[in-house]
């Protein structure tokens, strides 16, 4: 087993001992399920209304009525939920001094960071996989275009990974888990609002730049079924950048 695999195994092992994963997972799935249900019911009532108007059974667009709003809501839920998942990842190690063990074992800092990030990603992918029940159930009752659903999930994976990397950075900056959670949440909210500002400014050079920096526009395109390498590059480079900053922060703390 390589050191990175050892870190991943240990992270997953400790994650399932603590209640955080269960609470976060349960809350996440509950909200997701509730939202999906809400949008499905909404779609149903629209269908009834249309039927009364037209007299015939209408062809409902589930992609537009259910999946797209669910995906958009998910962005906000993830912003709330993922910082809780990531807050302990370095803050706890530093608080309990186990960080001293990691730093004095023949393992590189980037191996520690990558191992921890991958462990978080696996947890998140697990949570996401459970939400796959919703499209599978809907597929048995009606038909819809799978394409934007799959690209939407790709968007969720990428954006969630970026949130996780941001959380890793925040957790590296402090020994206090609450501060770490709040830091990453605050930062993500700010970047999200930046995206809104970008769309308010419209199609100007400044507006476009600001909009590019935010994760929302890139996610939006994926949810609508458009896979553009530009958006993939945005997420991947964002993840690498956050983890790189985490490395720098952890390194610089030893100099204090």
């Amino acid at each position: 087993m390589t050191p990175v695999q050892a870190i991943i195994a240990k992270e997953l092992r400790t994650a399932f001992v603590s209640p955080i994963v269960y609470v976060v997972g349960a809350v996440f799935l509950l909200i997701y399920g509730f939202l999906a249900y809400l949008y499905v019911v909404n779609a149903g009532s629209q269908a009834v209304r249309l039927m009364q108007l037209q007299g015939a059974a209408p062809q409902l667009n589930l992609n537009e009525l259910v999946f797209r709003p669910t995906f958009y809501s998910m962005a906000i839920i993830l912003m709330l939920v993922l910082p809780i998942l990531t807050m302990r990842v370095f803050a706890e190690e530093r608080k309990l001094r186990t960080f001293e063990l990691l730093m004095t074992c023949p393992i590189r800092m980037n191996e520690v960071i990558i191992g921890k990030f991958l462990a978080l990603l696996f947890l998140y992918l697990g949570m996401l996989a459970l939400t796959g029940i919703v499209p599978l159930i809907l597929a048995t009752y009606s038909s819809f275009d799978w394409n934007p659903v799959l690209t939407g999930y790709l968007g969720l994976v990428l954006m969630g990974a970026l949130f996780l990397a941001t959380g890793v950075l925040a957790s590296a900056m402090t020994e206090n888990q609450v501060v770490a959670a709040f830091l990453s949440f605050g930062f993500l909210l700010l970047v999200w609002l930046l995206g809104l500002l970008g769309s308010v400014l419209g199609d100007t050079p400044v507006g476009n730049t600001i909009a590019y920096l935010s994760f929302i526009d890139h996610y939006d395109r994926l949810v609508r079924g458009l896979v553009d390498s530009k958006d993939l590059i945005y997420y991947l480079s964002g993840i690498v950048l956050m983890l790189f900053f985490a490395h720098r922060v952890l390194d610089s703390q030893r100099w204090k």
């Binding site: 050191p3 050892a6 870190i7 603590s18 001293e100 063990l101 074992c105």
Partner: peptide, 23 residues
């Protein structure tokens, strides 16, 4: 170290196995 760097959530064997692997 001055404060033994232990993961409270692990058993002794699990902990030592982890340390051995990262070493």
């Amino acid at each position: 170290p001055e404060n033994p760097p232990l993961y409270q959530e692990l058993t002794v064997t699990e902990y030592l196995t982890f340390v051995g692997r990262i070493k």
